[in-house]
Structures are given as structure tokens and as C-alpha cells.
């Protein structure tokens, strides 16, 4: 009975969402083409009516997804839900086209606007080399410190965020869920957003950038580390337990030896990512080469921009190669 209600509710809300979205898209298009105006409430009412109509007649998408009907053996092209999905895709494409202001004409005819930056790229100004290298060094160290500071936090948190290590008690579960939720939450907030927060908090500069990357790295590494723990071979854990070792000894002797080289690999990979992100973070006040790039771009000094772009590309390329090499070696260990 309870299950039935759940299925009905799922069906209802899927259909309701479907029809309101479809009506909304159609309204946007009619408004765009013909200047057609309508109170928003009519979209909701219309969506509700269509939902009830097609849900009750049993041919809607929701019915198809959650309540296998007697039409299931029909090919999709001969069903109502099939065609309504096609309509949805077409309408979505058109709405997207207008929302994003897609304009191929501009793309092909306005290349001239970019002449400055293009010629800057091929005639980089080496006069600012020492200044740029200084900013670049700042960025690399910023990324390095963000990674280093993140390691101990993520290392400890990862043990408590690993399903197989946490006892299946209320406390164990709460700790696991809490840490996993925070890690997901903090990771889903982009480093650039953290940089905005910290550039207000501690002022514009590399320190703000480092804090932003550190927070993001803790969250990301906690997740990667704990998944690594969940993938370990349980055998040694069992064996070390059987010798009479306590929990902490089991972690140190059976878990850590199994995860140490993947941990290092992930950490180096993270440093690699952090160097790349440090540039972006610099744009919003995180200091380093990103900040310099932003300043030169706003002054329209394209030759300076050119040099900075080449330097960033070179560093990212070198980091990418070396980190891949080191990780390869670590996996073999």
C-alpha cells in the first residue's frame, strides 16, 4: 500500500515536471518569436491539467518509467511518451540556442577583433619575463602549499569516511555520513568561489588563493583517499585483527601499507590540478600568475598576455608529464 503511494507520487511528479517544463519552453519560444505574453500561473495550471489527463489515460512518460503498462512491448516510436520525449528534446534545443545567443555568423566574420591577442601570442613581450616568472613561482608554490596543507586533514578524515573501517553502529554511521556529506558539499563549491570568499576574508593575494585551493583539495582528497581505503584487500585487515592487534594497529599495519602508494599518486595528481586551478583562482583575487594575466588583459597589453599564456602552458605541460611519470612509478611499487 505504502509502496503503491510512493510509485503514484513518483509518477505524478515526474509527469508534472515534464509538462511544466515543456509548457515553459514553448512559452519562451512563443514569447521570443511573437512577443506572446502570459501569466506564469497558467503554465502551472496547464501543466497540472496535462499531467492528470495523460497520467490517468496511462500513456505518459511517468507511467512508462514507474508503472510498466500493457503497452510496454510497443516500439517507442509508436507510443505517446516516445513522441513527447522527442518534442521535449527539440524544444530544449531551440530554447538553448536562443538562451546562449548562438551566432555562427559572428564566429566566422569577426575574427578581426581577435587580431590583437593573436599577434600578441606570436610576439610575446620578453621584457616582462622576470616579473612573470616571479608570479609563476608564486602560483606553483601556492599550489604546492595548498596540497601539502590539505594532506594531513584529508589523510585523517579519509579513515572516518571509509565504509569498511567505520563500525556499523549509529555513531559510526553518523560520522561516515557527516564527513562524506561535507566533502561532497565543499567539493561541489568551485575553488573560484572559495577564492572570492577568502580574498575578502584575508585580502587579495596568494594566501587567499592557497586557502581556496586547500579547502577544495581537502574535500577532493578525502573522497579519493577514502574510496581507496574502501577498495583495499580485506584479508590483511582480518589477519592483523586475528593477531590481537587493536583498531589503531590494524589501521597502521594492515590499511596504510596498502594505500600509501595510491595516496601519493593521488596527491601528486592533486598538485597538478592545483597548479592549473591556481591560475584561474588568481583571476578572482588569488594572486600569482592569474592576477598578472588579468591585469595585463585589462590593460590590453596583448604581447604581455601572450608571454604569460606561453609560460602557463609550459608549466602545465611539464607538471602533467612529470606527475604522470611519477604516478606510473608509484603504481608499480
Amino acid at each position: 500500500m505504502k509502496n503503491n503511494l510512493k510509485i503514484t507520487l513518483k509518477t505524478f511528479f515526474t509527469d508534472l515536471l515534464f509538462w511544466i517544463y515543456l509548457l515553459g519552453c514553448l512559452y519562451y519560444l512563443f514569447n521570443y518569436w511573437f512577443g506572446f505574453e502570459l501569466e506564469n500561473i497558467y503554465l502551472l495550471v496547464g501543466g497540472l491539467i496535462l499531467t492528470l489527463l495523460f497520467m490517468l489515460s496511462g500513456i505518459s512518460l511517468g507511467r512508462k518509467l514507474f508503472l510498466p503498462s500493457r503497452f510496454t512491448e510497443l516500439k517507442w516510436s509508436r507510443t505517446f511518451w516516445g513522441w513527447s520525449v522527442i518534442l521535449l528534446l527539440i524544444v530544449t534545443f531551440f530554447v538553448g540556442w536562443y538562451l546562449v545567443e548562438v551566432n555562427p555568423y559572428k564566429f566566422f566574420t569577426k575574427f578581426g577583433n581577435a587580431r590583437g591577442i593573436m599577434s600578441g601570442l606570436f610576439n610575446p613581450n620578453f621584457d616582462i619575463l622576470s616579473m612573470s616568472l616571479k608570479a609563476l613561482t608564486e602560483t606553483i608554490y601556492l599550489a604546492l602549499l595548498a596540497t601539502l596543507f590539505a594532506i594531513p586533514f584529508a589523510f585523517i578524515l579519509s579513515f572516518f569516511a571509509a565504509r569498511n573501517l567505520m563500525p556499523k553502529t549509529l555513531l559510526g554511521n553518523t560520522v561516515y555520513v557527516a564527513i562524506r556529506t561535507f566533502a561532497t558539499l565543499f567539493r561541489s563549491i568551485e575553488a573560484i568561489v572559495w577564492a572570492i570568499i577568502f580574498s575578502v576574508w584575508v585580502g587579495i593575494g596568494p594566501f587567499a588563493g592557497m586557502l581556496a585551493l586547500m579547502i577544495h583539495s581537502i574535500a577532493a582528497l578525502t573522497k579519493l583517499y577514502s574510496e581507496q581505503i574502501e577498495n583495499i584487500d580485506d584479508g590483511p585487515v582480518e589477519a592483523i585483527k586475528a593477531t590481537g592487534a587493536n583498531t589503531l594497529q590494524v589501521w597502521v599495519f594492515a590499511v596504510i601499507p596498502q594505500i600509501i602508494s595510491p595516496y601519493l599518486a593521488f596527491t601528486i595528481y592533486r598538485w597538478d590540478i592545483n597548479v592549473r586551478m591556481a591560475t584561474i583562482v588568481g583571476f578572482v583575487g588569488g594572486g600569482g600568475i592569474g592576477l598578472l594575466l588579468l591585469q595585463q588583459q585589462q590593460l590590453l597589453r596583448w604581447q604581455n598576455v601572450g608571454l604569460i599564456i606561453w609560460l602557463i602552458a609550459a608549466v602545465v605541460w611539464i607538471m602533467d608529464m612529470t606527475s604522470a611519470k611519477i604516478r606510473e612509478k608509484l603504481i608499480e611499487m
Binding site: G235, P236, E238, A239, F253, A254, P257, M333
Partner: peptide
């Protein structure tokens, strides 16, 4: 499966 720590 012996259950040894393989990489030490």
C-alpha cells in the same frame, strides 16, 4: 589467500 601485506 594468505592475507599478507603484499608490498612490504
Amino acid at each position: 589467500q594468505f592475507n599478507l601485506i603484499k608490498n612490504v
